[in-house]
Amino acid sequence: MTVLENTPSAVLVLAVGVLCGTGVYLLLERPLTRVLLGFVLIGNGVNLMLLVAGGRAGASPIVGNAPNDEPMSDPLAQAMILTSIVITLALTALVLAVAYRSWQLHGHDEVADDVEDRRVARQAALNAPAFEDADATETGETLDEEAAEVYDEVADDDPDGQTPGDAPTDTPGGAR
């Protein structure tokens, strides 16, 4: 019985590395579309990884189809890759829908700040004790609205300068 040589091809391994590396870089970006591209790239990288895991290419894995001495490819790895491609497609559609909705609502598709981030920022600005409900303060905006407005790419548009780092020092109740 002929056993396929299982040493992975260096080109494939490098491709996996490059795809996953660029994917991670994009995944760390703020706009959803870039995150999505990152997801697709890593997804392809991981699929290639599955392909590498299945060993080298051989004849098509249909019993009775291959010439007698030629080894077949591993069909299981291919089945898994096909499944995961379909899943990636579905999830891509899902993320695109969310990105589009976000663009409809805010005119951009950046992932907004965590509400907790906003709370910390607001309380730092007010220098208020933590046990008061930050949503009840007088700014009139809920944390969610505020989170939606504060975003990275156009930092100058920040409406009232309430970025997490620059808490005003002369706010009411600022006794330390």
Partner: peptide, 12 residues
């Protein structure tokens, strides 16, 4: 299994 699939070709 994965090796066998690769190896047994036609007569499996």
């Amino acid at each position: 299994e994965s090796v066998e699939v690769a190896g047994t070709s036609g007569e499996r």
